[in-house]
Computed example of a mutant assay.
Amino acid sequence: MENNNFPSYSIPYFLLKEVIKRSLEEDIGNGDLTSSLLIPRNEKAKAHIIVREEAVLSGLEVACQVFSYIDPSLHCVSFFMDGQKVEKNTPIIEISGNAQALLMGERVALNFLSHLCGIATLTHRFVEVLRESKTKILDTRKTLPGLRFLQKYAVLCGGGANHRYSLSDHILIKDNHLSLIRRKMGESWLEWLQEKLTIIRYRKPLVRIEIETKTLEELSCICTLSPDIIMLDNMELNQISEGMKIINHKALVEVSGRVNLEKLQAVARLGVDFVSLGLLTHSAPAIDISMDIH
């Protein structure tokens, strides 16, 4: 199978290890009472993890690391790579070794896989709509605390791209920033901001500057600041169209908010560069994945 979406970087192991540790401590508690009482300590078994619906894969190594953390002697083999698309009822991983260890790792491994494959699959649906377009799909920082590195990795597996990973990545002046600046500077807010941005560009010439705008009136003011990227937030199609005329190729354009699969193509046809979607990480449906022990 083709794998065009395999991410160009690996998941940071030190972060992954800590997340797995916390997840297993939460799930196992003081021990697997059922397995320890019913399954012999030295019992051996083989298990297959099976995707029960069509999906784009993400988190295969995460799942294997879960089992390895419990018992390093477990043997885990992935049949595919992250970013590949698989059909319904496809076995994707085989794990063999101690039966109690398999049972202890099952739920945490499946939780990671179901969530990450869900993000990758939803991202892929949006990316496929734009296959013939220059518009790129971006994620946002609307992620679960502590899981951002995994969720953004899953977006890459689905063919999307990452927006800011953290507040330190580039300057993004949002509505609340502008509200505070206006409150402090009054009618001279625009001149004050222009001066600040001039200083920032001199001191940090490689840092991108992006400004969010919610109205066309505000957009006209923002354009005078010459940002690298302008975000059109929660605008209707007719407003985006007018906004593109106002910007007139003087900045890259990102559209955010109120964009679903039905609206996506129409937005892309207006010539925007990016569409950022919080729903990729905060609302992706989990993929049905199970583990069968033989």
Rank of each mutant, 00 (worst) to 15 (best):
H177K: 10
L180A: 15
D27A: 10
A286H: 09
L225R: 10
S256E: 04
G83R: 02
G31A: 03
I230P: 08
A55P: 02
E25V: 06
E54L: 12
K196S: 11
M104Y: 00
K204R: 14
Y153D: 09
Q84R: 07
S78E: 06
L270P: 07
M185L: 08
D175Q: 09
Y13A: 11
T281V: 07
S276K: 10
G97C: 09
S256V: 03
S241Y: 06
K142S: 03
T135P: 13
K250D: 09
V127T: 10
S256L: 02
S78C: 15
E242P: 04
E195M: 13
S290R: 13
P205L: 12
F14R: 10
R52G: 06
N3W: 03
M81I: 00
N42K: 04
D27Y: 01
E54I: 09
V86P: 01
L122S: 03
E53W: 05
D139K: 09
R41N: 14
F67S: 01
E132S: 11
W192M: 14
E191I: 11
L60P: 12
C157Y: 10
R183N: 12
T213E: 05
K250P: 03
A286G: 04
I289H: 02
S10P: 00
V255E: 07
N30I: 12
E218H: 04
V66P: 06
Q151E: 15
K21H: 14
D175Y: 00
D273H: 15
I211P: 02
L138P: 03
A161M: 13
S283P: 08
E242D: 15
I229Q: 05
H48D: 10
F126A: 02
A99N: 09
C117T: 11
I171A: 08
L277K: 09
L279I: 12
R41S: 15
E25R: 07
E217S: 13
G97Y: 09
V155D: 07
T198K: 15
V56W: 07
F67C: 02
L219K: 06
K17C: 05
P7K: 02
L264I: 03
S168R: 15
Q239Y: 04
A47G: 10
I287W: 04
K250W: 06
M291Q: 04
P285D: 05
Q84W: 04
R208C: 11
K196C: 12
A161T: 11
W189D: 05
L144S: 12
S10A: 13
G105K: 00
G160E: 08
P227R: 09
V272I: 07
S35K: 10
D228F: 06
Y13S: 12
G118A: 02
S220Y: 06
A284K: 09
G271P: 05
S58G: 09
V56G: 01
